[in-house]
C-alpha cells in the first residue's frame, strides 16, 4: 500500500498495517510526540487498533532533546 508520511509518499509491501506497525518500522516509537491520520490526532493507546489504508496521510512529530 501507499502512505503519505510527513509529506512523502512511501510504498509498503504489506496490505494491512496499524499505526503501531508504522511507528515500529521507523524505530522512533518512544520519541513520538504526536501522530495524526488524515488530520485527526491519534491517542497513544489507540496506535495498535488504528488500521491504515491505502492513501492515508500521516503526520508523525517526534521529540528531540537538543537546545
Amino acid at each position: 500500500m501507499e502512505l503519505h508520511v510527513n509529506g512523502e509518499t512511501l510504498h509498503f509491501a504489506k496490505d494491512t498495517m496499524t499505526m503501531l506497525d508504522l511507528l515500529e518500522a521507523y524505530d522512533i516509537e518512544e520519541k513520538v510526540a504526536a501522530v495524526e491520520k488524515n488530520k485527526e490526532i491519534i491517542r497513544k493507546t489507540d496506535y495498535s487498533q488504528t488500521n491504515l489504508e491505502d492513501g492515508d496521510r500521516i503526520e508523525i512529530v517526534h521529540f528531540v532533546g537538543g537546545g
Binding site: 510526540a33 512529530v61 521529540f63 528531540v64 532533546g65 537538543g66 537546545g67
Partner: peptide
Amino acid sequence: YGGCLTSYGIVL
C-alpha cells in the same frame, strides 16, 4: 518547550 537537533526543531 523547545528542542532542536541537526536541522530539525520542535516547539510546544
